[in-house]
Design a protein around this nucleic acid. Sequence first.
DNA 1: ACTCACGGGACAGCCCGTTCTT
DNA 2: AAGAACGGGCTGTCCCGTGAGT
Lengths: 198, 198, 198, 198
Amino acid sequence: MAKGLETRQSILERAAPLFNQRGFAGCSMGDVMEATGLEKGGLYRHFESKEELAIEVLRYSLERATRIRLEAVPEGTRAIEAISRYIEHFVVAPSAVPGGCPLMNAAIDSDDGNPALRAVVRKHLCSWKKRMRSLVERAQTEGDVKTDVDVEWLADTIIATLEGALMMSRVERTRQPLRHAQRSLEVVFASVKTERSR
Amino acid sequence: MAKGLETRQSILERAAPLFNQRGFAGCSMGDVMEATGLEKGGLYRHFESKEELAIEVLRYSLERATRIRLEAVPEGTRAIEAISRYIEHFVVAPSAVPGGCPLMNAAIDSDDGNPALRAVVRKHLCSWKKRMRSLVERAQTEGDVKTDVDVEWLADTIIATLEGALMMSRVERTRQPLRHAQRSLEVVFASVKTERSR
Amino acid sequence: MAKGLETRQSILERAAPLFNQRGFAGCSMGDVMEATGLEKGGLYRHFESKEELAIEVLRYSLERATRIRLEAVPEGTRAIEAISRYIEHFVVAPSAVPGGCPLMNAAIDSDDGNPALRAVVRKHLCSWKKRMRSLVERAQTEGDVKTDVDVEWLADTIIATLEGALMMSRVERTRQPLRHAQRSLEVVFASVKTERSR
Amino acid sequence: MAKGLETRQSILERAAPLFNQRGFAGCSMGDVMEATGLEKGGLYRHFESKEELAIEVLRYSLERATRIRLEAVPEGTRAIEAISRYIEHFVVAPSAVPGGCPLMNAAIDSDDGNPALRAVVRKHLCSWKKRMRSLVERAQTEGDVKTDVDVEWLADTIIATLEGALMMSRVERTRQPLRHAQRSLEVVFASVKTERSR
DNA sequence: ACTCACGGGACAGCCCGTTCTT
DNA sequence: AAGAACGGGCTGTCCCGTGAGT
């Protein structure tokens, strides 16, 4: 890799926890300087503003989180099993980037007043949902989930329950809410599985 | 009411949306000055630091949100019905304070690096859970919910699902995720209700 | 004493150490409020500005210091003995107001840019010198000091040596420089005493 | 010299009179900005706080004062003569930095509540005393001062008398107290000189 | 490709002083 | 006589961003 891109990548890696933990307003370029060991000039060569940096950092964090979660799901398994593994991994794995789920953090952070960041969040949530929908649809074609189930609803349910529980977990500093979320999703899935699949 | 307390209350009311929307770091005392019409001297008479103001504002927001949600549940009804109304209200009602759920916002905002705010969040989440648990327990004594159901789990499930869906709703600017959450909770409750209650 | 004057006096007493230790700019009205237990309104009833307060406080401190030092000199003694006792007392006694000699402190503090305070300092130094000159003159008429000695010079010498040594003492936190000053003054006096007096 | 160091030096030069005249609390960073023509950003690049600036400024002032006073004493002369010249120069020369002796000013200013500044003062006073002691000791080995004289005492006497007189001079705006101090020191030295040296 | 140097503005908080009320 | 409430300005510090220099 070229020297420049290497530096750029290293900035993203080191800045990711900062922005994820402190938010856009709570993280200063000085913090990034300290974390990267670069001076102002060095940073602004790669990103033309704090906002652009934040956006790229968010993209990096989201991709990383997505990749890690997908890696946890072994290929070649049935969709219904993949979903179960995905949830299990969400429940037990530490967050891909220190500071909790970057999607939720950025969603709250950018909710009012940072349209550029919000757009990234929105797009990523959309693709996350699509990914979950595909899984559910595959589970339907594989005969494990009833065909009359609203896949949009199921995708939303999985994401909402997990994210909500993650927030609670971080507040309480216990994994219990996540465990409870897993149980709830099992209950929900029990009601949508085909008889053959139980 | 005494003059001072009146002013103090008005500060809390006007600052609540600001902190809820922009977060602690994203909201300056200048913003609060503008929103309240007071000068620095006037503000600092009532709160001795930005942090103290933020804490009081958060308390105000949380109490307000709690009160509004509880008011939506008519007294004298069965617990199982009250829970259903509570969820319905959560889904359809606009947030008590502009900017979404203060609990989630503050949870994310204070997660890393603001222990004082975090403590308020923690305490409030705890009492919220307790309130939900009581409802579920009442539903058990009223014979609507099976007695072997883990109330802790049910309380967590309700909160997590609703909060997660609310976050998604705010990202997408649609109420759909909340509607989906309501449906999921109905599915979950279907599995815990006594036969008599269905 | 009337209630008002009592309060006024109490303000002076409590504020004296503050101004003496921190200087005019370094001591805020808030500090005075804390020290006196009064609110803004209470203070400004007795003094119409911080500057006026500082002036009155300085006057109070200077008078107090003067009085205490004079009390140390027993009446009815010969002037040459009084001078000796005066010096001894200056060397061993703790400062009348915490923070060192108010005259020196105020002199340095008001040297540039505070004419009103400076005027008080100037006047007090003048009367201090006059007091010392009178003592020396009495010692001359009493036949203990040569009549051709420049009293102005001797007064200046006493004050300068003591004040300079006091400054050094406060820097080093030792009484040694003051002891040395005493010895120097003994040497000086040895050279101006009449033969009969030795 | 490098650009940065040049600026830094210029800041010290221009800020020295300000701090020396107004004291730490009485001199604002705004004053320094005005005096240097730099903006906030420019200043804080060279000094990370007002306190650090004040310390460096004090060091600069003290070194400057010391250097100027030492330059006034021609090398190659006898110590007894050097001391005499030193005193003479102290009496007639204007202060090296506008506002009077930086040592005394900083001593009073930092006496209560600024330990960092105080430490600089202390150290400098110590080295000043050592310098004077060396001179006196050389005068002893050169046979001009009696060998049984306490050099510590003599060093303290010189410094105390001069500093005390300088303070008085600044209050009265006359050089008379300094002249008187010179005379006193002559009297003191007369008593410690060897017979051969008179 | 990166550091050094700097500008100019914003931020939290403190300051002195006034007015209204009790 | 004194406290409560408030104004408006200033202070030290941090901030983001630019441009010269290496």
